[in-house]
Amino acid sequence: MADTPPEVVCRDLACRFGELEVLAPLDLTFAAGQTTALVGPSGCGKSTLLRLVAGLETPSAGAVRIGGQSPSAVQRQGDLAIAFQEAALLPWRSLRGNVRLALRLARRPDDPAAVDRLIDLVGLTGFGEARPAELSGGMRQRATIARCLVTEPALLLLDEPFGAVDELTRLRLNLDLPRLWQARGTTTLLVTHSVSEAVLLADRILVFSDRPARVVADIPVDLPQPRAAAVTESLPYRRLVARVSDALGGGGGRLAAE
């Protein structure tokens, strides 16, 4: 599958935790090679949807198919990578060791050069031998992104990957990193709380309602790729930010558009 990015299809996908209905039945298709941002209120079920696609939760109804296969089959092929809200780095391994672990888990041959290239790319040059405890929160988040990308997955799932990163680094990563997965046509699902980040990174934005999550807006982002920092000053970008904010019910959309 690694050479052809997969389409992700959710059919009648629902999830309950006991009495709590987290996802109402959803029918969603994520196009192959596209980056889709999932935005919505806190606790609405975006992360649960991501975990269902990753095969880390079992749906109470419906199913997920990734390129026609089950999530567990894609897991076993090492074609799926997920970055969690919390940087799940193993504290006894160095940064380099953590990134290499992904290659091992995905049954890929060790590739020290690729590992170092990604560490440089996420701006952690010189920290390869550092332990996670010696890195700041933002550096740890960047390390998890390097770990995700090192296996060149066909499906990339990012759960607020830049949440702990400072604003400047965040903008730089928002501009640099997507080039990596977009160049390979990786199908990417991105959960984020930042409307501007969603518009900057995604080809499509799904806005979810409060729990149980339903799609309240499906907004295509037709800004040209690859995007540069200047795009954030453009009128179409600001209009899109306003549209997403309005769909979220924030009321700040009109202000942003003006």
């Binding site: 975990r51 990578a81 799940a88 888990l105």
Partner: peptide, 13 residues
């Protein structure tokens, strides 16, 4: 932490 184990599971291990 569950995240560490999720990482392993996400690679089908």
């Amino acid at each position: 932490p569950p995240g560490w184990l999720d990482l392993i599971r996400s690679y089908g291990r």
